[in-house]
Simulated scan of single mutants.
Amino acid sequence: MNSQSPKGFLLLEDGTLFLGRLVGPVLPTVAEVVFTTNMTGYQETFSDPSFRGQIVVMTAPQIGNYGVNAEDPESARPQVAGVVCRELSPTYSNWRATGSLPEWLATANVPVLTEVDTRRLTKHLRNVGVMRGVIGIGETPTREALASLDACPSMAGLDLASVVSTREAYSWGKPDAPYHIVAYDFGIKRNILRLFDAHGIRVTVVPSDMPADQVLAMDPDGVFLSNGPGDPEAVTYAPATIRRIAEQRVPMFGICLGHQLLGITFGGRTAKMPFGHRGGNQPVKDLETGQVLITSQNHGFAVVGSPDGVEGAPDLAVTHINLNDGTVEGLKHRTLPVFAVQYHPEAAPGPHDAVPLFDQFLTALRTRRG
């Protein structure tokens, strides 16, 4: 941006200060500060409900150069609390573009702090761990900014799934589709719904807290547990519901937060990661085939376990692991038609390595039909 943009800052809770130029709202904005290594797809990132309540640092050196459009968002609005980048392009050019990134973010009062040394910031978050931060105007944090930072809640213990979830059930896909599933919305992305539709599956999307008996009364061919933000162990209403449905031998598929909730449901636990996995370059190994997938991910919590299994959950087998840090990336129940992955198979970072998981779920639906 140009020099007419006001000076701004990002202050982390450990006292580290980063200076830049502020674009958009100038009121103090506080949230957990995380980074993503995606080189493209900024509109999908900023509209992903899994980023709710977070200030997102972009490691790509420039964003905004291809604008925004009406087809790519993963939800109805920007979900991030703030954006930090090295360079925010003053112009955009793309045949699909319908507007600029700064204008689109401004519609949701999302500030952008640009001209920041994002390499230094990312390395700091990698070394120290993600933490809370405040974006404000000027070069020196005001008392108001400091007070806002002190009052910002930790992501640990925070249930954000109920905040982003739909309030009313709705349908997605062709009414005459051969299969029908129910999707619990903990922060579902639109591309997941598009892929279900492409596989001949009609989806009824329901609130995150819908009771199991109401879902079972719909007699679905399967149930999907979506991605979402926040601490999985704070979604205390979900495990009993998931177990009730799973024990009826209804095929179940979980992604991201849904994966974590399945782990908790059957006796496991989750832990907050130092800086999480956010980006489109995460290597994951399929323990059954030995194949390595390059995956897209966005999470700050992980199911505690190893290739040998999940602590406290003997009924769960680990199917995938992350090759960078060994964390659990996939689970399946040993006797029930239930499986889940930590990564996003609907958000292929280039090759469609993980899309066959939708085929696996479709096979489970056919099997149940007999």
Rank of each mutant, 00 (worst) to 15 (best):
L146C: 07
L316C: 11
R368G: 10
S208L: 00
D359Q: 06
R21L: 07
V116W: 13
T107R: 15
T122I: 06
D219M: 11
T91L: 08
R244D: 14
R143A: 14
D185I: 12
L158C: 10
Q297K: 05
G173M: 05
Q291A: 14
A81M: 03
R368N: 04
L357Y: 14
S3I: 14
Y92N: 04
P251A: 12
E115I: 07
G222Q: 05
E87C: 00
N227Q: 15
D359T: 13
P175V: 04
V30L: 02
I255E: 04
M252P: 09
F35A: 15
T142E: 00
Y92K: 06
L101E: 03
N38F: 12
V206F: 03
F339L: 08
A151Y: 04
G173V: 10
F196C: 05
P178S: 05
A147L: 05
T122E: 12
A354R: 06
N38C: 13
G228H: 07
G228D: 07
Y92F: 15
A238T: 12
V30G: 14
A246R: 11
I63S: 04
V112M: 10
L19I: 12
E144A: 15
V164D: 08
W172Q: 07
T107G: 12
G82V: 08
G67W: 01
N65M: 06
D219I: 05
P345L: 10
E87Q: 04
I255A: 07
D286I: 01
P73T: 06
A70R: 14
E346D: 14
L362G: 09
N281W: 00
A240L: 06
C85H: 00
S75C: 01
L365A: 11
V30N: 08
T40N: 08
V206N: 01
Q297A: 13
G20V: 11
D159S: 07
F301C: 09
A317S: 15
L19D: 05
D308S: 13
D150C: 01
A364G: 02
R368H: 06
V203H: 00
G136C: 01
L22D: 08
L331N: 09
G370N: 09
V116R: 01
G187L: 11
T319M: 11
D219W: 00
V235K: 06
L11V: 12
E13Y: 03
A302K: 08
E168W: 04
Y170K: 00
G370T: 12
Y170R: 12
F339P: 10
F9G: 06
G350E: 06
A97H: 02
D197I: 00
Y66H: 08
P211Y: 01
F51I: 05
N2W: 11
R77D: 06
D231H: 12
A183N: 04
R190F: 03
A198L: 06
F301E: 07
V84E: 03
C152F: 00
V205I: 03
K272W: 03
A348T: 09
S5E: 15
T319P: 10
M273F: 01
L149R: 02
V116E: 09
A156F: 02
P307I: 13
V116M: 03
L101N: 05
Q214C: 04
M218W: 00
N281V: 01
R77L: 00
M131W: 00
S226F: 09
V318Q: 02
L160T: 05
I192C: 11
C152L: 03
M210W: 02
Y42R: 09
G228M: 08
V128I: 13
V116Y: 05
S5G: 08
F275Q: 10
L323A: 02
